[in-house]
Design a protein around this nucleic acid. Sequence first.
DNA 1: CGCAGACATCGACGATCGTCAATATCGACA
DNA 2: TGTCGATATTGACGATCGTCGATGTCTGCG
Lengths: 118, 118
Amino acid sequence: MTTALHTTAATQACCAPLVAAPLDPQDAEALARTLKALADPTRLRLLSLVAAHEGGEACVCDLTDPVGLSQPTVSHHLKVLVDAGLLTRDKRGVWAYYALVPGALDAVAAVLGTQLRR
Amino acid sequence: MTTALHTTAATQACCAPLVAAPLDPQDAEALARTLKALADPTRLRLLSLVAAHEGGEACVCDLTDPVGLSQPTVSHHLKVLVDAGLLTRDKRGVWAYYALVPGALDAVAAVLGTQLRR
DNA sequence: CGCAGACATCGACGATCGTCAATATCGACA
DNA sequence: TGTCGATATTGACGATCGTCGATGTCTGCG
């Protein structure tokens, strides 16, 4: 119950574009959970590091050095991003490879942006 | 020095689309500050309430009831959103009218989204 | 089997956050 | 001038967060 996975919020757009109509409390809570996962400089850097890495995936050992934090801390941030539905984890052998969930960031962007379209 | 205004982060896109190249620490910090302002269910509801209100603006008295929180708490959340460059405050007479900063949310969306464009 | 290495989990710490009641500030109006 | 009403600020509280060191888990290899 601590950090209930909510693979929903990011992958599927939760609601109308935010500016169109008042968000009901449930949608607001869901969106806020996803944004809370994004609202940390380290996690933003991890996302972009993963995305920019060759093959679109990276293991913890690739990330722990660029961000300059301890391995447990990096693992913790990655878990937050996975639980938020923004990253996938693929454990191959000893290594765990993280990659962006294809439409996740775009779904968040779509809810936030409005007069951008058209 | 507590919550230094950073009218920059939201209004002007801070950086490349996040997925293109590794975010440098400064840009990550700036983006995270803006996202942190958004990462609260009450503030998301306040944003959409303001946007959906007639004339695109609303005063505190219009908002304190729909969100069901005390007036000081609502004022505090509005201040956070103003400091983040997402809302403007226009005090006319006794009332303070809040409105969306035109391109702010779209700027955030543009940094987050990528394969959305085109 | 036993060791080494990659990663996850645990427990703890200071720091920040969301909320409230109490109080201060400021404009309108009699 | 003095009062009322709308909003902002202050101080305090419990809760959550980011970080670490220590430790647990699992895989590959000799």
